[in-house]
Computed example of a mutant assay.
Amino acid sequence: MTTLTHKLVALAALGLVAGAATYTPPAAAREVVEVVTVGTRPPPPRFERVPPPRSGYVWAPGYWNWYGGRYVWVGGRWNNYRPGYVYRPPVWRPYGRGYRIERETWVRDPRWHR
């Protein structure tokens, strides 16, 4: 082999080594569970006029969220309907000497038959 061929082979090998050394595999997907416990009771819910039903959607009522060291109102919104599931809105529950929020979720409807 010629000197140029040796140089190209060495350069290609160096590139492969450098690429392998700097490769980082993508992180595995995981669910982030945020636990918020607050020492004071949340304010009473605000009145929201629930809009007329929409086909294919479920109304998610507004709720108080803890953000930036205080309660912040999050207004209601429409969520896409999920066949076989029931929407559970967020709710604040007493926890120790404070309150903890249970985030909104979709749970399997036990009456659902495929």
Score class of each variant (00 low, 15 high):
V36T: 14
A20C: 15
G69D: 09
Y99I: 02
V35D: 08
G68K: 14
G56T: 13
E31Y: 10
V58E: 00
G75Q: 07
R41T: 09
G75C: 02
P90R: 02
Y87W: 15
R46E: 09
P61N: 12
A28T: 14
T22L: 12
P83E: 01
G69R: 06
D109M: 00
Y57P: 00
P53D: 04
V9Q: 04
P61R: 12
V38I: 15
K7W: 06
W73C: 09
P45M: 13
Y71I: 02
R46F: 05
R108D: 03
R70E: 13
D109Q: 03
H113F: 06
V32D: 10
P90N: 06
G75H: 01
G39R: 09
W66C: 04
A18Y: 09
A28E: 15
Y81S: 07
P45R: 09
V38W: 01
V72R: 04
L16Q: 14
W66N: 09
V36Q: 05
R97H: 07
E48I: 05
W64A: 09
V50D: 00
T22F: 13
G84T: 07
A21Q: 04
R49G: 03
L16E: 09
Y99P: 00
R111M: 02
P110R: 02
W73G: 08
P110F: 07
V50R: 06
T5I: 14
G62P: 15
R41K: 15
N80V: 14
A21M: 13
R100E: 01
G75I: 01
N80L: 13
A20E: 10
N80F: 03
G75V: 04
A21E: 03
P45L: 14
A29V: 12
V58F: 03
R108K: 13
A28D: 12
V72S: 07
R93C: 06
G15A: 15
P25H: 14
G96Y: 01
Y71G: 04
E31N: 08
Y57M: 15
V86R: 10
E104K: 05
W64I: 06
A29L: 08
Y67C: 04
V9T: 07
L8P: 00
T2Y: 08
L11Y: 02
L14M: 14
R111C: 00
G76M: 12
V107T: 06
V50H: 03
V17R: 01
P94G: 13
D109R: 03
V50I: 15
S55A: 08
R88P: 01
R97G: 11
G96A: 05
H6P: 00
W59G: 10
Y63P: 01
N65D: 15
G84E: 03
P89N: 04
E31W: 04
R77M: 10
